[in-house]
């Protein structure tokens, strides 16, 4: 019943033998121990398990690993690697979340950061509405979302400056 599945995870080509009906979140957390991806509801409502697949956000609790064949999967762990390559400690979105006070309990944070990344990778200057929409699939019970929206605005500035340099 196990099958060979090839995909790209955080920039690295992977080839695994696994049950194709396994949920992506279980592969990430239980098998690969990438625990930055959180499970908050198991039914795609809360967005804590958000990952990026080929540039688009997905709830990894609803994705089966058969669906990631030959695709690029990005988890929160990729952002630090990306930053390190540039000689930074953190990705500008992560830094913006800290600077804007967008983090409280932190459980929704990795998913929020990835939703922000998916937005900013496509749209470097989103307006307020586009920012709100980009995180509307990510629930947060602590912040009331205001500082998260602010963080994404700040991140857009940071990333533009980064691009110029």
């Amino acid at each position: 019943m196990n099958e060979q599945i090839r995909f790209n995870l955080n920039g690295k080509d992977m080839e695994i033998q696994a049950d194709p009906s396994m949920r992506l979140i279980d592969l990430l957390r239980d098998e690969l121990r990438l625990t930055g991806t959180k499970e908050g509801c198991g039914e795609g409502e809360c967005g804590a398990c958000t990952v990026i697949i080929d540039g688009i956000t997905a709830n990894s609790c609803l994705v089966l690993i058969s669906q990631i064949r030959d695709k690029k999967v990005t988890t929160i762990e990729a952002l630090e690697q990306e930053a390190l390559k540039k000689g930074d400690e953190l990705h500008p979105i992560q830094q913006a979340f800290i600077d804007a006070g967008a983090v409280q309990c932190g459980f929704c944070t990795p998913g929020m950061v990835l939703s922000a990344k998916a937005l900013l990778d496509h749209n470097s200057s989103p307006d307020e509405n586009e920012i709100k929409r980009s995180i509307s699939g990510n629930l947060c019970r602590c912040t009331g979302y205001k500082k998260i929206e602010k963080a994404i605005q700040i991140a857009s500035d940071y990333m533009k400056k980064d691009g110029v340099e």
Partner: peptide, 17 residues
């Protein structure tokens, strides 16, 4: 007993504060 039925606000529901 889950977030499809137990509704809490999303970013789109929040007013200017």
């Amino acid at each position: 007993d889950n977030f499809s039925k137990y509704i809490i606000p999303t970013s789109l529901d929040m007013p200017e504060i």
